[in-house]
Design a protein around this nucleic acid. Structure first.
Length: 198
DNA sequence: CCTGAGCGC
C-alpha cells in the first residue's frame, strides 16, 4: 500500500497532513506500519474510532496514538497553558496576520477564523522575555484553497478594534542545523501509528 | 525601549 492510498483512507476521518510509511533501512521493505498526521487531535481520535480494527488494503489494521509521545501522555491530552500555541497545528498553507491588538491571544485569533473551513491552527507570536505580543501571528490551513479563501474573506476585517492585515505567509526559514546525530523522529501529538503492510 | 512595523524558537 502506498502512502497516498493510505492518505485517501484516512481523509475520511478528517484532514490528513502527512503520511509516512516506515521502511526497513536495509531491505527497503515496508515495516508494516506508518505515521499519519491528522489536522487535529479531534480528527486523530476520529480516525482511530473509524479505522482501528478495520480492514485496510486487505488487512486488519491497528490504529492508535503513538505509544510514547514526546512528553508522555500528559502532554498529549493535557490542558493548554497560555494559548493554542501549544496545540498549533502547522501546515504549508499559512496566513500571516499583522496589525493585531496587543491583547489578542492565539485563541482569539482562532475564534475570529472559526467559521472558515480547513482552519488547523492559530498562533500569536510573543516576545520571549517580556511575554508581550509582537502584534502578529499565523493561521494554518488544510489546503492552499482554504488559506486563500479565508484570507480574502478576512483581510481588513476588524478584530478587537483593529483591521487584520493578512498575507500568505512567507516560506519559513530553513530548519536550524541539527546539532547531534539525527535519530529523533518527528512524533507529533496528533500522529497515529498503525500497522499496515503492503 | 508602556510599541504599531514586523514573517514564528
Amino acid at each position: 500500500m502506498t502512502s497516498s492510498q493510505l492518505g485517501d483512507v484516512f481523509n475520511e476521518a478528517g484532514s490528513v497532513i502527512s503520511v509516512e510509511i516506515v521502511y526497513d533501512r536495509v531491505t527497503d521493505r515496508s515495516r508494516g506500519f506508518a505515521f499519519v498526521t491528522m489536522g487535529s487531535v479531534q480528527e486523530a481520535k476520529e480516525a482511530i474510532r473509524m479505522f482501528d480494527g478495520s480492514q485496510v488494503g486487505g488487512r486488519t489494521v491497528k490504529v492508535n496514538f503513538p505509544e510514547v509521545p514526546r512528553g508522555g501522555e500528559r502532554a498529549v491530552m493535557g490542558p493548554k497553558i497560555r494559548s493554542s500555541y501549544r496545540g498549533f497545528v502547522d501546515s504549508p498553507y499559512k496566513i500571516y496576520a499583522g496589525n493585531l491588538s496587543w491583547r489578542l491571544t492565539s485563541e482569539g485569533l482562532r475564534d475570529a477564523f472559526a467559521d472558515h473551513p480547513g482552519l488547523l491552527g492559530a498562533k500569536v507570536i510573543y516576545e520571549r522575555e517580556s511575554g508581550r505580543s509582537r502584534g502578529f501571528g499565523f493561521l494554518s490551513f488544510a489546503s492552499a484553497e482554504n488559506a486563500e479563501s479565508a484570507l480574502n474573506a478576512m483581510n481588513e476585517v476588524e478584530v478587537e478594534g483593529r483591521p487584520l492585515r493578512l498575507n500568505l505567509a512567507a516560506v519559513r526559514a530553513p530548519p536550524a542545523p541539527s546539532p547531534g546525530p539525527g535519530l529523533e523522529r518527528n512524533v507529533d501529538n496528533s500522529e497515529l501509528i498503525s500497522s499496515i503492510s503492503t
